[in-house]
Write a protein that binds this DNA or RNA. Structure first.
Lengths: 330, 330
DNA sequence: CTGTTAGCGCTTTCAC
DNA sequence: GTGAAAGCGCTAACAG
C-alpha cells in the first residue's frame, strides 16, 4: 500500500543500495544521483517502514513504561514528563498500567520484551531477588522509580527517608509534642511480597528521627480504618499534637473527616501530608507537605534509561531534591 | 541473542514451515512431530519475534493514543480504561501527549502511522476539513473522543449540549433567577483553529435552554480574568444567582476565591461545575456538577477502534449517559 | 560511485 | 504430513 525503497529504486533506475545511501545520507554516492532520488522520494511521500528498519537494526525506538499506581496523583505529571523527554529523543512510550497486580506486572514486562522495546521504566509492586532476576533475564535496560527493586537496577527518586526526617524536624521545631504517624496499608492485594519500598523508607526515617527527638512522643497508625483510632488519640492528652501522613491523599481524607467532626486544624491538631499533589490547591486550610518534582523524576528516568540503552553505564542512584512546605495546616 | 524458529527447526530436524505449523497450531501436522517441537520450544523458552511477525502480517497489535490535555483530570481514568481494555485484546498502547500544540499533534499522528499502529484514539486540538483529510491519509482507523473532528470519524463521548441543558433545568427548578455562565479560554495558544468542540457544545446547550426558560436572566463570562467580573455580577442585583462553570476546575478556583472574599456558597451565590473530577471528594462545600464515566468512554473508544480495525464499520456516534449531581453548593 | 547479495525472523504458498 | 522457496521492507558487506 505504501511506497517502498524498492519502488523508488526502480523509478530512478538504480539499485536499492543506492537509494539507501541517498535516504540515509551515507557517503559514497554521486550528488546528482542522490538529488534525483531524494526528489522522487519526496514527491511520492516516501516514509521508511519502521518495522522493517527496527527488525534489521535491532532497535525499536520504543520505551516501555510499567506503572502500578494510576491513582497516585504523580502519575499524570510523571507520564507527561517522560513522554516529552522520550519524544525529544525520538522514542515513543508504550504504557502499561498494572493495577498493583504482580502477575500483570510480570506479564507486561514480558510482553514489552517480546515487542523488543529498547528499555523499560518500572514502578513495581514486585520485589526481591527472584524478581530482580526475572527482570534481568530479558537483557533490556531497566530504570526503576519509586520502589527500588534491587542493587543492580538504576533508581531515580527522592530520598524518602531523609524527607521524612526533615518533616519530623520541622514539626518538632514548630513545637509539636506528639506526632501521630498515619501509614495505612496500600494495595488491593497486600501481601508480604508487595514492594513497599518508599513507604518503608518513610517509616524508617520517621522512627529514626523520633527516637532522636527528646521529649516528643509518637504513635504509628497503620490500620485500614484509621479514623476511629485517630479520634481517640486526639483526645488522649493535653500535648500539642500533629498528624503526619505518608501521603497527601490520607491527609485530605482525614481533613474532611475532622472538619465534619468539628475538630479545628491546626488549632486542635496539626496535619501534614506528603507529595504535594496538585489537588492541594483547592483545599482549606492549605496543607503542609513535602514537595518534589515529578517532572524532574520523569525526565531523569528517561535520561538514565537512554544512557543505559546507549551502552554507557547509567547512574545507579539518582536522587532529586525535596523540600518541606509549610502551609496553614501546621 | 534470542532463540529463533529456525534454530528450533534445526534442533528438531524439520523445516521452519513445520515448526510454524506446530507453534501456531495450524492443521496438517503429525501430532508426534508437533509434540516434539512444542517441547523443544518450551524448553528453550522460545518467543516469537514480534517485529518479524508484525512485518509479515501487517499488524502490530498497537494502538496510538494522542491526547492534548494532561491537566484534565479525566486523563488518568481514561488512560487506565483504555489500557486495560486494549490489553484484554492483546493490544498495547502507544501514548503521545501533545500539550495542546497542533503541530505536535500532527507530528505524533504521523509518527504513529510510521510505526504502523493498527489504530489511533484521538483527542485533538486540530479541527477542520483539512485536518480531517490529514488524518484520513494514513489509512488507519481513528476514533475521536471529546472534540469531534469531522463526520467521517467515529466519535465517543457524552452529549455535552444536552448535559448543559439539563444543568440549566436543574438550576431553574431550584429557583435560581440569574445564571452566570463561566467559560474562560482554555489553551495556551488559543487560535481560531483550535478545536473547542465540547466547549462550544456546552455553550450552545446553555444558550438554548436559557432562552427557553422564562424569567431567568443570564450572563456569559469568557474573560481570562474572571474573578473581577464575577464579584461585580454577584452584587449587581437581588436575584438568586448561581455560577455555572464549564469545568470543575474553574468552579474550584472560584470557590477558593469566594471563600476568601467571605462570600457564602450557596447562601450568597450558588456554584456548579462540570465533569465530576475526583478532586471534588475533598472540597467543602461539596460541588454540584455533571457526572459521567470516563471509564466507559475509554472502554467504548477502544471497542469501537478494534471493531474498525477488524474491518467492520464502527458506530459513528457513541453517546454515553450523564447525570446532574446535586450537592451542597447549589 | 554503484550493483549484488545476504540476511533480520517470520509466514505463506505450492509442490512433493 | 512435510519441505522448499519466496517475500515482508530494509540495511550492510563486499565486489566491481
Amino acid at each position: 500500500m505504501n511506497i517502498t525503497s524498492k519502488e523508488i529504486a526502480e523509478l530512478c533506475g538504480v539499485s536499492r543500495g543506492t537509494v539507501d545511501r541517498a535516504l540515509n545520507n551515507r557517503p559514497g554516492i554521486n550528488p546528482e544521483t542522490k538529488d534525483k532520488i531524494m526528489k522522487v522520494a519526496e514527491q511520492l511521500g516516501y516514509r521508511p517502514h519502521f518495522l522493517a528498519q527496527s527488525l534489521v537494526k535491532g532497535k525499536t525506538m520504543s520505551i516501555g513504561v510499567v506503572i502500578f499506581d494510576i491513582n497516585n496523583r504523580l502519575f499524570p505529571q510523571l507520564i507527561h514528563a517522560m513522554d516529552t523527554r522520550a519524544r525529544e529523543h525520538r522514542y515513543f512510550l508504550y504504557l502499561a498500567l498494572t493495577d498493583k497486580d504482580p502477575e500483570t506486572e510480570r506479564e507486561c514486562i514480558r510482553n514489552l520484551a517480546d515487542r523488543k522495546v529498547d528499555g523499560i521504566v518500572l514502578l513495581s509492586v514486585n520485589k526481591g531477588k527472584e524478581f530482580e532476576k526475572y527482570v534481568g533475564q530479558f537483557n533490556i535496560p531497566v530504570v526503576t522509580i519509586g520502589n527500588r527493586v534491587g542493587p543492580t537496577i538504576p533508581y531515580v527518586w527522592i530520598n524518602d527517608r531523609k524527607a521524612m526526617q526533615d518533616s519530623v524536624s520541622f514539626l518538632v521545631a514548630k513545637g509539636y509534642e506528639e506526632i501521630i504517624y498515619v501509614s495505612p496499608p496500600i494495595g488491593h492485594k497486600e501481601s508480604p511480597k508487595t514492594n513497599l519500598y518508599t513507604m518503608e523508607q518513610r517509616l524508617l526515617g520517621f522512627k529514626e528521627s523520633v527516637k532522636r527527638a527528646k521529649g516528643v512522643s509518637s504513635t504509628i497508625v497503620t490500620s485500614k480504618d484509621y479514623y476511629a483510632e485517630l479520634e481517640q488519640l486526639i483526645r488522649s492528652s493535653r500535648k500539642r499534637k500533629v498528624i503526619l501522613c505518608t501521603s497527601d491523599i490520607y491527609a485530605l481524607r482525614i481533613m474532611q473527616h475532622l472538619k465534619q467532626a468539628g475538630v479545628s486544624i491546626p488549632g486542635d491538631v496539626g496535619l501534614m501530608g506528603f507529595d504535594d499533589i496538585d489537588t492541594l490547591e483547592f483545599v482549606t486550610p492549605s496543607l503542609s507537605t513535602v514537595s518534589f518534582s515529578s517532572n524532574e523524576i520523569g525526565r531523569l528516568a528517561i535520561d538514565s534509561l537512554i544512557q543505559a540503552i546507549a551502552g554507557e553505564d547509567a547512574e545507579m542512584n539518582t536522587v532529586i531534591g525535596h523540600r518541606v512546605v509549610e502551609r496553614q495546616s501546621t
